[in-house]
Design a protein around this nucleic acid. Structure first.
Lengths: 208, 208
DNA sequence: GACTGTGAATAAGTTCACAGCT
DNA sequence: AGCTGTGAACTTATTCACAGTC
């Protein structure tokens, strides 16, 4: 329950805190200070305290944060306390890798439906999840109440797919297509472009 | 030739400008204004002008920017005017998808060597590039003068791999392992964590 | 004494607004 | 007239520094 508007930068750090805390819980560490968390995550301790304080006072002065309590709170803040279903559109190399990676490893956000326009692919399975024709997308998303979409289709189709996802009820989109998607009204879009990452990285080769 | 220190945010936008400009060149468009470029990229025209101006005056007042000249300049600024070689470490699902995606599509930054510790994988090929044992990594990187590394190994190994890459002469690292890599002295590290992206995205489901 | 929570100070990044070329 | 290049204003994000609590 955010008190006011939360900086996007903060939201993007929360999953990192959560991952670190989960590891600590696994290792039976019960309490951690912001300074220790800082060392493990690479962010400053003030930043961590400030980020967490946006959502309330989770720590104990003079002591630190309860790892289990804080990780539970972060899960809830992020909306991961119940499994989040996501739909993947596009089962090419990248889409398939993402699906395998996600389905085998992670539980919080889980790809429960995959769509592709290629009839050769539909009917196949990725880690037990069937690839279905794109025509069934809207209905499936509505029926299953899916709110999150992952786009891994060729660039020229990405914007259209985003719109279809929105129309079906999706509210947050992760786009891997090498093009910038303009967020359809009422959706949040995060673009992740691997080619772009590589290209901007090239700038840092042979400098400073 | 940067006049002073360039904001990281600017560097990350340059490849997007470049991509848009390349498309324009292909479409025989010779000149474009910052306002038109703004519409195509989603950034503001002032921002685009400011970003470009960090590197010099590429535009013509009253006219706009020459698409071919500007794209050439951006290529040079990013260091993409000559092919940039990159090494991929880790040929699991994600690494393999990245390699296929990169090798088949892109020319600017090209994966020319792939390494994996699994003897079952070494000897296989991804799009014509052989997967080699990790023991050969250092020597290959040195011999080929590779400055860029892509890490797609399991989290516990990522930091070690980063250090090895640095020792071999790599200066910029793109890390896909689900852990934050602390940049070894003298390297620039960009962490891209797909799981994290999905988790922070979950926050935007069912809000505002 | 130790560590959190937070206002105040600083830095980074974006938008405004306009002077200056062509 | 049209569009760039840029200082100045503003907004967002980070760091400092310390009062408050256990």
């Amino acid at each position: 329950m955010p008190r006011n508007r939360i900086p996007e930068a903060t939201i993007r750090r929360l999953p990192i805190y959560l991952r670190t805390l989960s590891d600590l819980v696994d290792d039976q560490v019960e309490v951690i200070s912001s300074a220790e968390l800082a060392e493990k995550t690479g962010f400053s301790s003030e930043q961590i305290r400030k980020d967490l304080a946006y959502f309330g006072a989770f720590g104990v002065r003079g002591v630190g944060y309860s790892t289990s309590h804080l990780s539970q709170c972060l899960r809830r803040i992020l909306g991961l306390h119940k499994e989040v279903k996501a739909v993947l559109v596009g089962a090419g190399h990248l889409g398939t890798a993402l699906a395998r990676y996600n389905i085998t490893r992670h539980k919080d956000v889980r790809i429960t439906a995959i769509f592709d326009s290629d009839p050769q692919k539909t009917g196949q399975y990725i880690e037990g999840v069937p690839i279905r024709p794109i025509g069934e997308m809207k209905e499936t998303i509505k029926r299953e109440g899916i709110k999150m979409g992952i786009i891994a289709v060729p660039a020229p189709e990405a914007q259209k797919v985003a719109l279809k996802l929105k129309e079906a009820g999706v509210e947050a989109i992760l786009n891997f297509a090498p093009t910038k998607i303009v967020p359809p009204e009422g959706t949040f879009v995060q673009n992740v472009d691997l080619t772009l990452e590589l290209q901007s990285l090239a700038y840092y080769v042979n400098r400073e």
